[in-house]
Amino acid sequence: MSTDKADALAAASFRNAQFEPRQSTSRFIADALRTAIVEGSLLPGEPLRQDAIARQFSVSAIPVREAFRQLESEGWVTIEPNRGASVSLQSADEAREIYEIRASLESLAIGIAIEQHTPETLAECQRLLKAAANEPDPALYVVRNEQFHMSLYAPAGRPRLMELIGQMHRRGERYLRVKFGLPTFKGQSDAEHQAIYKALCARDTEAAQRLVARHLLATGELVYRFLNEAQAFAQSSYAKKRRRSARPSSTRQGRQ
């Protein structure tokens, strides 16, 4: 593992330790790898060397393998026989589907939770809303964003529903980073969060559900378009390089 990659994992480990200092070793490693992927320190398709990561964290191979399996179940890592683990490629279709699922689950959750909110829980929502809006660090914004969304639904008292929503948040983290990279849309997202919060305070169930679903579906479509356009551009650039590399050979053949 290069020095830069090791430094990136060390930094990710420190940030995660600030939030959950009593994690298991495998979960700690998984969180650090996930953060490095979200931040772009580990790129799509990049191999993950088990031995190098074990040395970086001063552990045996066992918790690293467990971390890989956890990340594979969340869609972050691909494990292939005889080839090992690598960072999963980004998928426009997956991104859109994740946000479609989130729209369904979270509109249901806010509808259940809205009448159970108290002045204290609403104040906590507002605090987390401001924290997300004012967070400039992409990796920490992912955390703040999830905390705000989950605070909207917590009073519902539906642990299994909350677990499913949490799983979808984790699978969508790397795609949320795409949106964060577009400053205009980050500001739009913060405004949509504010509108959802106002509907929550007004106990307007229909508006809250509609705004949550619209917010998430719009994010999914935005990321879907961005990734498709990026893939089309990459394919076009690759085709142009292939054509350029073929020209000298063709010219020489024509002169013979």
Rank of each mutant, 00 (worst) to 15 (best):
M150T: 13
D190A: 10
P155D: 11
A199I: 12
L122W: 06
I101T: 04
A202Q: 15
S60P: 01
D190G: 02
E46H: 05
Q56W: 00
R170I: 11
P159M: 07
I79Y: 12
F19L: 13
K241P: 00
A8L: 08
M162C: 07
P136G: 06
A61H: 06
L71K: 04
A202V: 04
F233R: 14
M150E: 14
F28A: 07
R244A: 15
R252D: 09
S86D: 02
L200D: 09
I62V: 09
S104R: 02
A218K: 15
L140W: 05
E72R: 12
A154Q: 13
E146P: 01
A61I: 07
V178D: 01
T205V: 13
I53D: 03
E124T: 09
S60G: 13
I110V: 13
N145P: 00
N228C: 12
R252E: 10
A17D: 12
R158F: 09
S189N: 09
R15E: 03
E229G: 00
A218V: 04
I165V: 14
E66W: 00
I165R: 01
P138W: 05
E120P: 00
E20V: 12
E146N: 07
A246G: 02
S250Y: 04
H215N: 15
H149N: 13
L222V: 05
K198M: 12
Y153E: 11
T3G: 07
A234P: 03
A207W: 05
V59I: 06
D204S: 12
P155K: 10
L182V: 08
Q253L: 14
Q70R: 14
P138V: 02
S73T: 14
A213Y: 09
F68M: 11
R102H: 04
A195D: 15
I165Y: 01
A17K: 11
Q231P: 03
